[in-house]
Design a binder for these strands. Sequence first.
DNA 1: CTCAACTAACTTGTATGGTAGTATAGCAGC
DNA 2: GCTGCTATACTACCATACAAGTTAGTTGAG
Lengths: 222, 222
Amino acid sequence: MKSIPQRAASIGAQLHQALRDAIVRAELKPGTALSEAEIAVRYTVSRQPVREAFIRLAQEDLVEIRPQRGTYVKRIVMADVLDARFVREAIEVAVAREAALKADEPAIERLRATLRAQGAASGNAEFLAADEAMHHEIALIAGREAAWRVVDQVKAQMDRVRYLSYTNVSPAERLIAQHGEIVEAIAAHDADAAEAAVRTHMAEILLQLPQLAAQYPEMFEF
Amino acid sequence: MKSIPQRAASIGAQLHQALRDAIVRAELKPGTALSEAEIAVRYTVSRQPVREAFIRLAQEDLVEIRPQRGTYVKRIVMADVLDARFVREAIEVAVAREAALKADEPAIERLRATLRAQGAASGNAEFLAADEAMHHEIALIAGREAAWRVVDQVKAQMDRVRYLSYTNVSPAERLIAQHGEIVEAIAAHDADAAEAAVRTHMAEILLQLPQLAAQYPEMFEF
DNA sequence: CTCAACTAACTTGTATGGTAGTATAGCAGC
DNA sequence: GCTGCTATACTACCATACAAGTTAGTTGAG
């Protein structure tokens, strides 16, 4: 871990990261009005970097810029979440199949390690981080880092939903068990089983969605 | 076609669109140095909107902004093209399967119409536009507009390759025949056949890539 | 009381000046 | 001829000022 000086990222980029996190974690609630000027004074920077961060966020569909009117945290649109799920399933199925073919012993051990880490996680945020690490690791094993970046972008819409409830609707053990099946399928180099396990896992969010939409209606659209 | 006044998009957004087109069509060659100031005078606007357009392009991996150094049109990275292909295949396979299940008679007729339009297309740009229309139509039939937006973004890396050669390596008849198979599979509501046809079609670019990389080495990296 | 017009306080969009970091060409010294 | 410093001409980045559009509230006429 030789993290050399590494020129600090531009203010605009830092802001983008910070705001993105806040939106995904629902600290900035859907529908909230942002304002270049307001954010600028809060972070004691000029409006320009804030504006640039907004542009990045708009391109990720996390905020909506309405010219001369204001910039708003996008409400969670049911259809968008379902579409994100669809895309994510398609990509992750293909990734998992490749991982099942390519996985060697050390790779499998790394997967099992992330599984144990997730079991030991305490708290919602930590659990979700471990969840993400697991999926990311599979992509790395398949040698599809770029594909993971697409998934990472798309799944922001899904994560917003997951962060809504501190105690997830789906119990942790259930999700960990699903992860276990994926890992074992990959370890067995069984691509079909891996595909099936991923599809089952990806269907899980469908169970949470209606309940959360009923619980937080002001955050959803439609 | 009632194109109401429709507030003109911001200069930054217009520039983004224009530059994106120019890059994908290889009018701006890979490796070219851009410059906020230079583009600004060329379009007679200030540097700020140019800067914002650059940020958008950077997020799409079409340019690389090197702080205090310059902004460059990204070279075509072989691995990126292959990854884009991988993601696109994963998504379009899933989309085609859904389309095969959902397609009704008028939808099938629209597909056949795009096929005829492609046969009548003259010139490379027109042909590629028809190609894109075909894939887009399938996504619309499946009701996966959002998924198509992801494909559209990812496939920019592939289109850059396709625009390199005015006479595509793969003859038009061959590609049209492949499209025909996809359409007929969807018309027959045969999801498995549709999947197979899409995978065959997506493999086509793999044949062009090595030849083009050899022909235009200065545009590639690695 | 009703409603239209004006005003004031917002919003994002654009232009411009200045700053700091980077690359390069030229010159001095060896 | 080669190396190392220095001036200079770039670059992206940030701050600030101004412009133009939107919205809400207030005021005044009917």
